[in-house]
Design a protein around this nucleic acid. Sequence first.
DNA 1: ATATTTTAGTTTATAATATAAACTAGTCTA
DNA 2: TAGACTAGTTTATATTATAAACTAAAATAT
Lengths: 97, 97
Amino acid sequence: MALNDLDPVLHSQLRLAVISLLISVKEAEFTHIKEQTNATAGNLSVQLQKLKEAGYIDIEKSFKDNYPQTSCKITKAGIKAFDIYVHNLQQYIKPAK
Amino acid sequence: MALNDLDPVLHSQLRLAVISLLISVKEAEFTHIKEQTNATAGNLSVQLQKLKEAGYIDIEKSFKDNYPQTSCKITKAGIKAFDIYVHNLQQYIKPAK
DNA sequence: ATATTTTAGTTTATAATATAAACTAGTCTA
DNA sequence: TAGACTAGTTTATATTATAAACTAAAATAT
């Protein structure tokens, strides 16, 4: 049983935390994700762009109460990538034989 | 249930693969690890040093059939760190609620 | 015997990634 | 209307991963 490569887009603590969150809630705002992950705004901004570029999340910008609002949701490709990532990762962390 | 930080020493595909291997075999030679992980020798050399510096593995150098031989085994600290890493990682990848 | 290849690595340079600091643009409040 | 706050983005820096180049000796072929 060989070890498959781990998707580098997901093998990042912050991006993995974001995807983990979005899988459970389906949609979340920038500030909410920032709070839940303890990320800095700058780091989160960059990592959300990478997830978007990978096609793993959709980002929608709007205004709420006069303030800009960035809302994120996971895509089907994101769910699939996460599933594969988790599956591959299990090979690395399964209990020793 | 907050997400704990993931040990950066272990949250690296190659180092995780090395630790995963060493947990299952207790001891392995450089060339064997290299083959099992598909790593380049240079990369493996660097990552083994990092695991050693972290106290997660012991490295013993000797000679076998006239050639230098580098043998690695996991330490108690390495086993503990791996257990904690896996435990924390589960929070990220557990099925969505 | 000596040149070439192979083994078993290490060191160093470069590329990729993560992170934080600095910045933008607008809003609220005293 | 000055200062502080919201909600981000951009840019610069630090860290990390990786590969290329190198070392040193042994085995093999010529």
